[in-house]
Amino acid sequence: MTLHDDATLVLKGYAPEHRAGAEDGQAELRQAYLDHLALHDDGMWKACAAGHLTASALVIDPEREKVLLTLHRKLRMWLQMGGHCEPRDTTLEAAALREAMEESGITGLTLLPGGPVRLDRHPIPSPCNRHLDVQYAALAPAGAAERISEESLELRWFGYEDVPEVADTSVVRLLEATRARL
């Protein structure tokens, strides 16, 4: 099975009507992602000029009620960990977990069961143009120590209540949906 096939199966199984945030267009986004994959054999890859799927994960420590965000080097925004799928990724989950571990420096992360938490489509500076992000949540192990990567200007743990002050609506909605699943 290819990553493209896995993404199609994951999206077909994503039931936004049964999740928090269903009222904000998740069903329509799900269909747009499926349509994109049906039209573009290269829809998983950065080279796809029409846009491409990405995988991300919000690193969360539910016991401390904190999330780890990265100050993205290029975008200069506080975001969840994530990015482009790579040829070695066999599943969207694997891509999200790889990105979360690479960007946070934390080993032992585990994805919150139940598949993606949310979908988010957003414009991105050229040459990528548009990301169709499949968003997961990753649970940090007790005593997790983060380590900054070359993709970040800074990593910082934020209390749940502090996220709306530093992050955009997409990250806030991802946190809300994640907390509803905990």
Results as ranks from 00 to 15, higher is better:
180 A>N: 04
21 G>R: 10
73 R>S: 10
153 L>Q: 12
138 A>T: 07
38 A>H: 11
42 D>I: 08
7 A>L: 04
144 A>E: 03
88 R>L: 11
26 Q>A: 10
79 L>G: 02
21 G>Y: 06
139 L>S: 02
98 R>H: 07
164 P>H: 03
104 S>R: 12
18 H>I: 09
35 D>R: 12
65 E>G: 01
155 L>G: 01
8 T>C: 09
74 K>L: 12
9 L>C: 10
110 T>E: 13
35 D>A: 13
160 Y>S: 00
10 V>R: 07
69 L>P: 00
152 S>C: 14
58 L>H: 05
62 P>S: 05
58 L>Q: 05
182 L>K: 02
78 W>K: 03
139 L>I: 15
3 L>F: 10
87 P>G: 07
91 T>C: 04
80 Q>T: 10
111 L>W: 08
76 R>Y: 06
105 G>K: 14
3 L>H: 07
154 E>T: 08
99 E>V: 05
182 L>P: 00
155 L>R: 03
100 A>W: 13
115 G>R: 07
4 H>M: 03
94 A>M: 10
150 E>C: 05
67 V>L: 08
154 E>S: 11
140 A>F: 05
42 D>S: 11
101 M>Y: 02
46 K>Q: 10
160 Y>A: 02
89 D>L: 09
101 M>W: 01
28 E>T: 15
145 A>T: 15
104 S>N: 09
123 P>I: 09
99 E>M: 14
87 P>R: 13
138 A>M: 11
2 T>W: 06
167 A>G: 03
99 E>H: 13
65 E>A: 15
34 L>N: 03
170 S>V: 09
46 K>E: 06
18 H>Q: 14
154 E>M: 11
121 R>Q: 13
132 L>V: 03
49 A>Q: 15
3 L>C: 09
94 A>V: 06
17 E>I: 14
131 H>P: 00
91 T>R: 07
55 A>Y: 04
103 E>C: 07
178 T>Q: 04
117 V>F: 03
177 A>H: 05
17 E>R: 15
52 H>C: 00
3 L>Q: 10
127 P>V: 04
44 M>E: 01
90 T>M: 11
92 L>V: 15
27 A>M: 13
137 A>Y: 06
97 L>A: 08
71 L>G: 00
41 D>T: 14
121 R>A: 14
150 E>Q: 14
4 H>W: 15
182 L>S: 08
121 R>G: 00
84 H>Q: 14
29 L>W: 07
98 R>K: 11
132 L>P: 00
130 R>F: 08
38 A>T: 12
166 V>D: 00
50 A>G: 01
45 W>T: 07
35 D>G: 03
167 A>S: 03
98 R>M: 11
17 E>W: 13
92 L>G: 08
57 A>Q: 08
8 T>A: 13
133 D>H: 06
32 A>C: 03
176 E>I: 06
2 T>K: 09
125 P>H: 04
65 E>S: 12
23 E>K: 14
55 A>M: 08
124 I>C: 02
30 R>C: 01
58 L>M: 12
32 A>M: 12
114 G>K: 13
38 A>C: 06
71 L>P: 00
37 L>P: 00
128 C>K: 04
